[in-house]
Design a protein around this nucleic acid. Structure first.
Length: 987
DNA sequence: GAAGTTACAAA
DNA sequence: ATAGAGTAACTTC
């Protein structure tokens, strides 16, 4: 990709640019606490201990004498588990342990009522190799529970079932809050198209005689590449696999149109279904419910687009219900499991599920907070941690099998099951563990299929929908654009503390299997609660985002949270073609028309980065074009069918400094789709969300919409510019960056003409030296008139240090509150600890720089920190040096040692030096910590190494590579540090 | 510069 | 089970 995608992500938010800004993290955690009624079980709280909290449900009551470990335990619990803001309180607490602090075991009363699909009085056994979901559908059919009539249900997913060879849908029935399954009643078939005529194709015996071929039909579609209506042959197959599968129709014909679209997606597009929208079902027929629309809003939306191009107006009309229907409240259950630890400390393999499930926690929107805990005699009971939710129910099980069955019973009651990484862990583990324990598959609601990418399993529920919220939050566009990069890592800990202001319960040093039962329960429950809360916080923000993205992309829920932005935009463009009866072009057609090959990834010129003026600058204004590339795509009408179109009258409509011309007669599909999304965000939702006269809930919805749209707008160029995207079109990608460069250059010219010095600029920004307010206004106005682009003041630096290098600078924001470090080496995973620490020290010093004077003073301090770091390498503790462990570089084995044949990475080399006994214990997943040494091998396991082994040179080199760029930006030559030569800085 | 390797996230 | 489904950052050759 030509532009630097990282740049956008790192750019800190301004105004309302991401959803974190209408969350109040500092006050948020406290507020939430009280609203959730998480009270603290303190000894003096009479109201707690006196109330024998609702009989059988509460387990956290009194009784339990003389536990010798209790006092110690309690202290540990308070110390390690307190959140920072509670720290103080815990110190003041008196240290006497009362009986009511002890956890009491309340056992689950056996329940023999049938669970799930075992409730029916008929027998319908699973056929050999029958998919779990197919079996469930057959059972529902036999029980006559396939939905035929429903007043109102939100369409959540559409999927394909091979057993029925049909699409089926899951609706959330708003009346009884259950999932209702509907099986296709429309006789929809799988198909693809071909440009050969029906006559020609019927001569092709390979096709006609193919098992799985059904019939041919001649249809008309509009071919955008030809700009005319054409006749096509629609080829029907018996099942989706006959179209695109091995020896299928596509293979026989050497390619076919629209044969790569997933069957169930095709089903959605063809029936113009919109996942996330409300529907009714009458006698098996699904039809959209007219959403409640505010006529005033409708009128206002119309007004906003009154002067827009026809194509955008039409889109606004079609999409109006999509944007105005409320997302709705949906009942959901989050859960989390804890598993007995493995002997070697590695992660239990969820496919093997060899180890006991020791605890399962649940948290649901109906208020349920529950833990099912396996009673283990060898584990201490412990005391109830102070912030354990008072309204939580804890039940003990003697038998793991019963625990799992009751877990499943609970699952069968909920329409939506939420997990954090449940695809790869919890669901897969439970499914296999239950099978291992011979729990009937009629009771087991989970099914597991093969995943792709880093998620190796896809899991879902027979009766419900599973959402792995980890995958949604880890989605790079969601993370970067909807949440403004608020969390760096994607762990529950990181995401929750960033978005909820509250992290997981800490269990530093204590392994899960060694925790007291009370601590385990607490730890387990908090994870479910956080998982649920990540979908409910801020008025169901995440849930609403998911629903809105489903509506925009037309993708079913289970695909939406698993797929990336490119698949979202692909689906949006597919559905737009289908809606307008445009033929979706094949990749080869686009390549031929655009004269490029996507395999060769012909490099085109990317963004323009202005040569920086090195040195220290003060009062620098940074202006940038808001959503530059999407704006260009819209205003210049860039799309695969509009660049060098077929109209002679467009031939002189050249793009600036370009061999391409663009269409003047019709708006391109990319241009109007991206343009519409951009316009509806800027002109409608952003102003709505800032309008104080609008009701709070509407403003909130507007913010969600604006955030969702931002994801598409910001993601669009990256997708269009990527050769793997099915609609990749080199002339579009090339023209976009081309016009971007042109626009920046014109802006520089204009600034200089106005007497404002340009210090630096990258892609869509210009750094101006001491611009006046008036000059900024003038530039903004000029840009709007001459370039048709929105230019804005993004930030002001009171101090900016530019190195000679591009994409490498340090800026201190006006007020000195924030420091931007660009192009600096990220803290690499395998950077030794002592370097990480020192890098943090340097960052802290940087934040102190506010003016020329403080810069000079702090500059010296930074030099000293680095010099000292170098000096101490290899020095003993007595001389102030680092521990040998601080030199350690940690890397995990991805396979057994003997499996490394092609190349032996350094950590494997180190592992091979370990004593044989230890080597035997190494398997996939084990961490190897090694240091770099001066020996032949160059490495040594940290356990065998001493300070004398350390390779000074290598470590000094690491110090250098970590700090060089920081120093470069500050105008310090690294040689100065090493003391080889003294150079005066250029300041 | 291409090819190979690992981390991510979960107990 | 049936079509498809990750990526950044690093090391080694």
């Amino acid at each position: 990709m030509p532009s630097d995608p990282k740049k956008k992500k790192k750019t800190p938010p301004k105004g309302f640019t991401n959803l974190n800004q209408f969350m109040t993290p500092s006050s948020g955690s406290k507020k939430k606490k009280s609203s959730q009624k998480i009270t603290h079980l303190t000894k003096n709280d009479k109201s707690n201990s006196n109330k024998p909290v609702s009989k059988s449900t509460s387990s956290i009551t009194e009784q339990k004498k003389d536990n010798p470990a209790s006092t110690k335990d309690f202290k540990n619990a308070t110390k390690s588990k307190k959140k920072p803001h509670l720290q103080e309180k815990s110190i003041v607490r008196d240290k006497v342990i009362k009986e009511e602090d002890m956890l009491q075991k309340v056992f689950f009363e056996p329940n023999s009522a049938p669970i799930g699909d075992s409730q029916y009085d008929f027998e319908l056994e699973r056929e050999s190799r029958e998919a779990q979901k197919s079996w469930h559908l057959r059972i529902l059919q036999k029980a006559d529970e396939i939905i035929q009539d429903m007043e109102k249900g939100i369409l959540l997913t559409v999927d394909y079932d091979g057993g029925q060879n049909k699409a089926f849908a899951k609706f959330y029935d708003t009346k009884d809050q259950k999932i209702k399954i509907w099986i296709d009643t429309t006789k929809h078939q799988s198909y693809c198209y071909h440009k050969d005529s029906e006559d020609e194709l019927s001569q092709n015996l390979d096709l006609i005689d193919l098992e799985g071929f059904d019939h041919l039909e001649t249809v008309k579609k509009y071919d955008l590449l030809e700009d005319k209506e054409i006749e096509l042959t629609k080829i029907y197959g018996d099942a989706p696999s006959h179209i695109g599968g091995a020896n299928g129709i596509r293979e026989i014909l050497g390619g076919a149109w629209e044969s790569r679209i997933r069957y169930h997606h095709n089903f959605i597009y063809d029936n113009e279904l919109i996942p996330g929208m409300p529907y009714k079902i009458e006698k098996g027929i699904v039809s959209p419910l007219e959403p409640e629309i505010d006529p005033i809003l409708q009128q206002e939306l119309f007004e906003v687009f009154k002067t827009a191009p026809e194509e955008i107006q039409e889109m606004a009309k079609v999409y109006q219900p999509v944007f105005s229907a409320p997302p709705g409240e949906v009942k959901r259950l989050a859960y989390d499991i804890e598993v007995e630890e493995t002997p070697d400390g590695t992660l239990p393999d969820p496919m093997l599920a060899k180890f006991k499930v020791i605890s399962v926690s649940f948290a649901a929107t109906d208020g349920l907070k529950q833990v099912y805990c396996l009673d283990r005699d060898d584990v201490e009971i412990g005391t109830v941690p102070e912030d354990f939710p008072q309204d939580a129910v804890v039940k003990f099980f003697k038998d793991e099998r019963e625990l799992l069955k009751e877990t499943f019973r609970l699952f069968w009651d909920y329409p939506i099951i939420l997990t954090f990484n449940g695809d790869n862990f919890d669901n897969t583990y439970l499914y296999h563990r239950a099978r291992r324990m011979k729990i009937s598959e009629k009771i087991n609601p989970i099914y597991v299929s093969r995943g792709g990418g880093m998620v190796t399993h896809n899991t879902d529920y027979k009766h419900a929908i599973h959402i792995d919220i980890f995958q949604f939050f880890a989605n790079r566009s969601i993370k970067g654009y909807a949440f403004g990069g608020a969390y760096l890592k994607n762990s529950l800990e990181a995401v929750a503390s960033a978005l909820l202001g509250e992290g997981k319960v800490k269990h530093e040093g204590v392994l899960i299997g060694k925790m007291t039962l009370a601590d385990l329960i607490h730890y387990n429950l908090m994870d479910s609660m956080l998982t649920l809360e990540l979908t409910t916080f801020n008025n169901n923000l995440m849930w609403n985002l998911l629903i809105v993205i489903m509506r925009i992309t037309r993708l079913p829920m289970q695909d939406t949270f698993r797929l990336q932005i490119s698949a979202w935009i692909r689906s949006l463009i597919y559905s737009e073609h289908k809606r307008k009866n445009y033929l979706i072009p094949r990749m080869s057609e686009l390549e031929r028309r655009g004269k490029f090959s996507r395999n060769k990834t012909e490099k085109f010129q990317g963004a323009y980065v202005i040569d920086p003026v090195p040195g220290a600058h003060y009062n620098v204004g940074v202006l940038d074009f808001s959503s530059l590339y999407p704006s260009i795509i819209k205003t210049r009408n860039l799309s695969y069918e509009t660049i060098n179109c077929h109209h002679p009258e467009c031939e002189d409509n050249f793009l600036p400094d370009s061999p391409y011309y663009t269409c003047t007669k019709r708006m391109g599909i990319f241009a109007y789709v991206v343009g519409f999304l951009r316009d509806v965000r800027v002109k409608w939702f952003k102003s709505l969300s800032n309008n104080k006269n609008v009701a709070e809930n509407e403003r909130h919805t507007a913010k969600v919409m604006a955030a969702a749209l931002k994801v598409f707008i910001n993601g669009s160029y990256g997708v269009f510019g990527s050769p793997v995207f099915p609609f990749y079109y080199l002339p579009v990608a090339e023209s976009t960056t081309n016009i971007g460069r042109y626009s920046i250059q014109k802006t520089i010219d204009k600034s200089e003409e106005m007497g404002v010095k340009v210090l630096y600029g990258d892609t869509d920004s210009v750094f101006l030296l001491q611009p006046t307010e008036k000059q900024i206004k003038e530039l903004v106005k000029w840009s709007e008139e001459k370039l048709d682009l929105d230019l804005e003041l993004e930030k002001t630096y009171q101090f900016l240090a530019l190195s000679g290098r591009k994409k490498n600078y340090i800026g201190v924001r006006q007020g000195g509150k924030q420091v931007d470090l660009k192009g600096l080496m990220a803290k690499k995973h395998n950077t030794p600890e002592f370097i990480k620490k020192r890098f943090n020290d340097v960052q802290t010093v940087l934040t102190k720089i506010t003016d020329d004077e403080s810069f000079k003073a702090n500059r010296e301090e930074i030099i000293q920190i680095i010099k000292q770091t170098n000096r101490l390498i290899g020095k003993t503790k007595e001389k102030g040096g680092f521990d040998i462990k601080d030199y350690g570089i940690m890397t995990a084995l991805k396979k057994g040692i003997s499996a490394y044949t092609k190349a032996i990475p350094q950590h494997v080399k180190a592992a091979q030096m370990l004593p044989e006994q230890e080597q035997k214990k190494l398997e996939r997943g084990t961490f190897i910590t090694y240091v770099k040494t001066r020996s032949q091998a160059g490495v040594k396991p940290v356990s065998l190494a001493t300070l004398a082994d350390i390779d000074y040179k290598k470590y000094k080199e690491m110090v250098r590579s970590t700090f060089e760029q920081v120093l470069d930006a500050l105008g310090i030559n690294y040689e100065e540090i090493q003391g080889i030569k003294k150079l005066s800085s250029f300041f």
